[in-house]
Structure formats: structure tokens, C-alpha cells
Nucleic acid binder design. Structure first.
Length: 576
RNA sequence: CGGGGUGUAGCGCAGCUUGGUAGCGCGCAGCGUUCGGGACGCUGAGGUCCCGGGUUCAAGUCCCGGCACCCCGACCA
């Protein structure tokens, strides 16, 4: 490809909208362009990367016997109604109607559709297990797209689906996908770690996310410093000593705290650490009734954990009416004498005397102890509802946990019979009965992976593409192009390389050396070859890997062979 | 969906406080000089100042309403 013909130009300065390094470089290097919020066009350079990423995924899916197919982007409403997701997904999906008024959804994912096909194609246990996948655009009307390709409203996902006879089969399929994911991300040079993730409102048993640690990421992860544990903060736990303390000597007593409604204000006026207080939040349960959540003052509520506990899709905080109903006073709510069920966080130490709201204006209680002044009433109301923070103890080994940011490039999810039950998706078992498919789904975001590679593989000059996904393999720079000898030599080298199947980006522009080298560094092709007046005087060309600061001179007459050889080796290494 | 911010040439920005008919750098086009790390000179093209309404002799600038985009939070590959 001649750069003078390339559709897409590099930008000297990053557009102001771009904040993360990957987003800036993606735009500057002409990988993709925004069309509207969360909608991106791949430019030719970026499209080549996306196709290479897809090909790696394809090869690894095929390797584990997962079969490629393709399901439509537009999906009829009826399918979604069978599982209740037509209504559930309403706020975050794009919908349309055909001319007859039939409703459609731009596919958000394909569990329903693939089950529909499985019902038709898989009649007998003899056809199981089965695994299929496709690359398809997904539409999600995210309320907040961000960071370029990291979260868009339309994106191509590789989504795979497994169908098994039973739980043991599902576990085998799941393990196969997990193994494929490890290979896939390694091949694209993404250092993805698999972390336990929240299974969300769908229930299900097991789910892992493949996360790449980078500051640009939007997920927060707890990671054991000894490597024994890693989990999304949505579900991350920590080791807590459940040893209780002796009750305080004093009985609980009122203290006047006029106008002091926040933990911060209480800390200041009572000169006590945040951990000396109880924070009591009033939320609504599924029936709209008030429920109190009690946490130590130095711990934050983890909404994902609470949602899961309440079985709700979002946390609804109490309004004035609920406060009245529960007998609480906003700013002075406490667990003692409250007319609502109380969920007590596991970080609240039994027996310890805390300062808590008195459910009375301008008043708190001191020496309030769990087990004496209030209780969780039932074992299932003593629950982990707080955020893990940096330095907490690992739940497996007790070593300190670190909290880091990550990008979720893929996830795998064993949902079991969640969909097959609702869709009555069954097969005929060996014993002659009809049994439900036991399934899992496995996604990888292609565009997100591409930008994540940039986020984690660049320097201050530009992208450093891993060979396996680079848009081109060799970048030939002619310098200067108005020198006939140089022009002819560069043309000839490019022609030879292309003839031998090397993917070449050829900077044939009449630009200064500075511009061409700066662009080469920005675009980040793995091998740069400079054919210049100077190099030709010593009958050589200059070879410089993008990732290295060292350049070497290669004799002109063997340059093509040498490059073909280098590329061949690099391809072999990248395929492993 | 809550909070914050920004919309002026392809990109980065100034001008707005104090209203007077739009500017800088880069990029782009032509010519010439240059040619190994974002060269130089000359000439030139390019603007519904986000949109709509209002105030005014006069609005990029002031007022009202909308829209778009970005950032932080809640949700996802």
C-alpha cells in the first residue's frame, strides 16, 4: 500500500475529545474516526488490525471445535419476549419496526436467537455437545460511551455459545473456552488476566472476565499480591476476622449532634475515626418496602452486591415517605429501634461499641453494639455489602489486595439452563426423556481489544503494534523520493516484498525525513526499512524494528530475502 | 440518568468580561529552495462563529430555549 494513496491521514495533534493514550493514538494514527457518540468508522489501517484480531479469534475458536456461523443484526421481538428480555433491555437497546409494524431489536447479544436455532438443529443427545460462534455487530444504547473504542454503542463482538447435556459437559465447554481465551489474548499480546465476575441479575453459577490492567480501564479489580485471587470489585471479597469483641461497659446513650448528618462531620465534631461510626442507609426492596443497610463508617456500600442481595436491577434509595414509614430521620438513621429489616454488613464488628444514628433529630447514640443493641435477626441478613479497598486481606491467603483498573476485553459465562428453561429448549436424552440444554456464552469485543492493545503497547511517539495484529508487516520509507535512484530502489524493494507475500506499507510521499519517520513511529508497523540516498551509497538499506531503538544496515542486494525471512519467522512466532 | 465542562476553518486554540461585521499556529493548494527526525520563502483557498428565538442601529460576544460532544459517577464486549 502506497501511503500517498492511503485513505486516512495522520494527525499531528490529538483531538481534544481524546483523553486516554490509546484513544489519542488511535485517532492520530488513522485507525478509526468518530461518526457520532459511541459510533466509529474503521479506517483502512484500523480495519486491517480488526480483521487480524478476528482471525486470531477464529483460529482459536476453530481449534476447540467451535463452529463459525452468522446470525442477523436485526432480531424479531417475539424471541426476546420469551425470556422477558424485551422489557428488561428496553432502556439500552435500539429498536425499530418494519412497514407492517412488526417490532425488531438491534441485537444486544444472541442467546435467544441461538437457542431458537439449537431447538431446530439439535434434536438428540447424539448431537451434543455443540459450540457455535459468530462475529456480529451489537447495538447497545449505552448512556455513556467513552474513551474511543473502549465503550461504543455499536461494536463487533465474537460471541460463542455452548450447548451441553449436563453440568459436567458445560464445565468442559467452559474450560475449553477459557483455554482458548488464554491463547487468543496471548497471541494478540494482551496481558489479560481472568478474574471472577458478578453474574448479574441473570443468576448463573460461574463467570470470568478477561481483564487487561491499564489506567484507561473502567472496571476496578481486586488482585492478590501473591496471585491467589483476582475479582471484579463488583463481587470481590476479603478475609475478615469474625472474632467478636466484648460489649462496651457502658449502656448505649444519647449524644447531641445538632446538624451533624454525615460521617465526615461527625468525625470532625466528635474527634473519632470514620471506623467508629455506623453508616445506616435506607433503600427499598423489591416490593418497595424500606430496608436498612448498616456499614462501618469507613466502608462504602457496594451497589452491585446489594443489588444481587435484593434481587433487583438497580438500587432504589428511600424517599421521605420511606423514612417516615421506618421511623428514621434523614441524617440520623440508625439500626436501633428502626421499623425496617436490617442488613448488617460483614465489616461491622459484633460487640464493638459504635456511634450510630438515634432515629431522632440532631441525636446519635454511642456504645451501640451489634448483638446487644441491635441484631441482623437472621443469618442471611449478615452479608458482605462493602467495597474491598487497597490493602484488604486476600480471601484465600490473607496477603494484601491491590485495587487496579482494567479493561474487560472478554468474558465467559456459564448460565446453565437459564435460557433453555424459559424457551423450553430441549433435546431427546439417551433415556428417552426431554432434557434442557445446559449452556454458556463467551464474548470478546473486537474494537475494544484493538484499542486496548494500543493502550498497553505504545511509547511517546506512537503505537507499537505486536506483529500478529499490525496493519502491515514492513514499512518502507524512501528518502528522498525525488531522487531517481532512491525512488527506483524503493519501488523495486516493495515490488519484490509484495510479490513474496509480505504486507508492505510504502511511504512514497514527497515529505521530509522528519515527517516520514514521525509518521512511521506513530503508525507503528513492526519493521521499518529506510531506503535513502545515504544508505544506498554504502549499498545498503536501514532496518529498524519499531520496538527497538537500534537500527542496522542490511546490504541492499540481500535486503528483500532478509526481510522475507524475518517476516516468516515473525509470523510463525505469532501463530503460536 | 444525576453532576461538571465545551461548541469559532480539517486539527489545536485566541477573541466573549467591556457588542462595531473574525484571528493565530499547524494542516491544505500553487511556485521555488531544501532533503536522515514533524524544513524555509512567496502566493493562495478555506468560516451557516452548534441551532432557533430575543434585545440592539449593530450579536461570535448579552438574554431565553434547544441540540451536539467530552469528562466524573451508576450499567456493559
Amino acid at each position: 500500500m502506497r501511503m500517498s494513496r492511503l485513505f486516512g491521514r495522520t494527525l499531528r495533534e490529538p483531538p481534544s475529545e481524546a483523553q486516554t493514550p490509546g484513544h489519542q493514538l488511535m485517532l492520530r494514527a488513522a485507525i478509526a474516526r468518530p461518526l457520532a457518540a459511541g459510533l466509529y468508522t474503521w479506517l483502512p489501517l484500523g480495519f486491517r488490525v480488526a480483521k487480524k484480531v478476528e482471525q486470531i479469534i477464529r483460529e482459536e475458536m476453530d481449534r476447540i471445535g467451535c463452529q463459525e456461523m452468522e446470525m442477523p443484526v436485526l432480531t424479531p421481538a417475539e424471541v426476546w419476549k420469551t425470556t422477558g428480555r424485551w422489557d428488561l433491555l428496553e432502556p439500552i437497546t435500539f429498536r425499530t419496526k418494519d412497514h407492517n409494524g412488526r417490532e425488531f431489536m438491534v441485537s444486544y447479544t444472541h442467546e435467544e436467537v441461538v437457542h431458537l436455532h439449537a431447538i431446530n438443529e439439535i434434536l438428540s443427545y447424539r448431537q451434543l455437545p455443540a459450540m457455535v460462534y459468530h462475529f456480529q455487530s451489537k447495538g447497545r444504547d449505552e448512556t455513556r460511551p467513552r474513551a474511543g473504542l473502549l465503550r461504543t454503542r455499536e461494536f463487533v463482538m465474537k460471541d460463542a455459545y455452548s450447548f451441553d447435556m449436563d453440568q459436567a459437559g458445560l464445565e468442559r465447554s467452559y474450560a475449553a473456552q477459557h483455554g482458548a481465551y488464554v491463547r487468543i489474548f496471548r497471541r494478540m499480546s494482551l496481558d489479560a488476566i481472568s478474574v471472577e465476575s458478578d453474574t448479574g441479575a441473570m443468576g448463573g453459577d460461574v463467570a470470568h472476565e478477561f481483564q487487561v490492567l491499564t489506567e484507561a480501564g473502567e472496571d476496578r479489580l481486586a488482585i492478590c499480591s501473591r496471585g491467589d485471587y483476582s475479582a471484579n470489585l463488583e463481587k470481590a471479597a476479603r478475609k475478615i476476622d469474625d472474632a467478636s469483641e466484648p460489649f462496651p461497659k457502658a449502656a448505649r446513650s444519647e449524644i447531641a449532634t445538632p446538624g451533624t448528618t454525615t460521617i465526615e462531620a461527625l468525625q470532625a465534631s466528635l474527634k473519632l475515626p470514620a471506623s467508629a461510626f455506623l453508616k445506616t442507609l435506607l433503600v427499598k426492596d423489591r416490593d418497595g418496602k424500606p430496608v436498612a443497610v448498616v456499614l462501618p463508617g469507613d466502608r462504602n456500600l457496594n451497589e452491585a452486591k446489594l443489588r444481587k442481595r435484593l434481587g433487583m436491577s438497580d438500587v432504589q434509595f428511600a424517599g421521605d415517605a420511606d423514612f417516615a414509614r421506618a421511623g428514621g430521620v434523614a441524617g440520623f438513621v440508625g439500626p436501633v429501634g428502626l421499623g425496617a429489616p436490617v442488613l448488617v454488613d460483614t465489616a461491622v464488628v459484633a460487640g464493638r461499641g459504635y456511634v450510630a444514628g438515634a432515629n431522632k433529630k440532631d441525636t446519635h447514640l454511642k456504645d451501640v453494639a451489634l448483638g446487644r443493641d441491635f441484631t441482623a435477626e437472621r443469618a442471611d441478613r449478615r452479608v458482605d455489602l462493602h467495597d474491598v479497598i487497597e490493602g484488604d486481606a486476600c480471601p484465600t491467603c490473607g496477603a494484601p489486595l491491590a485495587v487496579k483498573r482494567g479493561v474487560e476485553v472478554g468474558n465467559i459465562f456459564a448460565y446453565g439452563t437459564y435460557y433453555s428453561e424459559k424457551m423450553n429448549a430441549t433435546y431427546l436424552a439417551e433415556d428417552g426423556t426431554r432434557k434442557l440444554f445446559v449452556g454458556g456464552s463467551y464474548g470478546i469485543g473486537v474494537g475494544r481489544s484493538v484499542q486496548t492493545i494500543i493502550e498497553t503497547s505504545h511509547d511517546d511517539k506512537g503505537i507499537i503494534w505486536p506483529f500478529a495484529v499490525a496493519p502491515y508487516e514492513v514499512h518502507v520509507v524512501g528518502l528522498p523520493m525525488n531522487d531517481e535512484t532512491v525512488h527506483a530502489a524503493a519501488d523495486a524493494l516493495v515490488a519484490t516484498l509484495e510479490e513474496k507475500g509480505v504486507q508492505v506499507l510504502y511511504d512514497d510521499r514527497d515529505e521530509s525525513a522528519g515527517v516520514k519517520f514521525a509518521d512511521a513511529d506513530l503508525i507503528g508497523i513492526p519493521f521499518r526499512v529506510t531506503v535513502s540516498r545515504r544508505s544506498l551509497q554504502s549499498k545498503s538499506v536501514e532496518l529498524k524494528p519499531r520496538a527497538s531503538s537500534e537500527a542496522e544496515l542490511v546490504p541492499h542486494d540481500i535486503a528483500a530475502d532478509r526481510l522475507v525471512d524475518i517476516v516468516r519467522r515473525a509470523r510463525e512466532a505469532a501463530a503460536r
